[in-house]
Amino acid sequence: MPSEEELYQEHILDHYEDPFHRGHLTSATHAHEDKNPLCGDVVRIELELNDEGKIKNVYFDGQGCVISQASASMLIEEMYGKTIDDIKAFTAEEMLALYGPRLTPNRQKCCLLSWKVLQSAVHSPVASGDEN
């Protein structure tokens, strides 16, 4: 089992306190929000995709534990500027590797919340007035 020094490595706490692109995107073309009902972690991801399927911009917002929020920041930073195909090809295993420390199955759910939300977001165009 990982110790908490391992679990809460400096770069993870850095993402938690100083996240990449936390907020909202008024130009969003796609968006999705989901929660982990077991613990109440919430992540919302808003994407602006251009006609070529490239991510022009992406923001996340949410609330929850360090793992759920820091992993969202790390994922958004990783995917910024990439394509829909890159997102679809990005596996859960790669998400866990991007986060770093080994996680118990329960904490893996925290880490994979943003990954699930992003996978759904690319299939969730923002309709006029109703985005989900």
Partner: peptide, 21 residues
């Protein structure tokens, strides 16, 4: 978040508590 309390209480202090709803 409650997870942080439960994780550190367990790992560093051996204290088992419940975190969640």
């Amino acid at each position: 978040h409650a997870h942080e309390f439960a994780q550190v209480l367990n790992d560093q202090f051996g204290v088992a508590v419940r975190a969640g709803h």
